[in-house]
């Protein structure tokens, strides 16, 4: 019984990590909609405000890909302490994609909520 419970917990944890990774791209674009962020600030924002607890290193390859796809752009500037920081912003193309993603997300979220509510009522 205890073994089954541990296996179920491990499976749920694996599923949760994949789920979080799946929404990461969307969460990054959403965070950048609020204005430019440098790398560490963006990661902190995602892990604290959005509670997306993935290894912090996961974010940077995604940022590289989003930049390569022309959805975000980066610029090196000196930060507050003088150390150079890379600031990320949405490109016009990124804004358009994000605006298209938001209603899709809401639709999906409503559908899953509906399924969950149905399950609770049964």
């Amino acid at each position: 019984m205890a073994r089954n419970s541990i296996e179920a917990h491990e499976e749920t944890a694996r599923w949760e990590v994949q789920l979080r990774k799946g929404v990461l791209e969307f969460a990054i674009l959403l965070t950048l909609r609020g204005g430019e962020h440098y790398g560490f600030e963006l990661v902190t924002s995602l892990t604290s405000k959005a509670r997306i607890n993935v290894p912090e290193g996961t974010i940077y390859p995604l940022l590289l890909r989003l930049a390569k796809d022309g959805l975000i752009k980066s610029e090196m500037r000196d930060g507050e302490g003088g150390a150079p920081r890379k600031y990320y912003t949405l490109t016009p193309r990124g804004v358009v994609l994000l605006e298209a993603m938001i209603p899709r997300w809401k639709q999906l979220s409503t559908s899953v909520e509906g399924l969950l509510a149905g399950e609770e009522n049964d």
Binding site: G39, G57, L63, P84, R85, K86
Partner: peptide, 8 residues
């Protein structure tokens, strides 16, 4: 990027 992140 990662080096800057670790320092921050």
């Amino acid at each position: 990027d990662l080096e800057r992140h670790v320092m921050e």
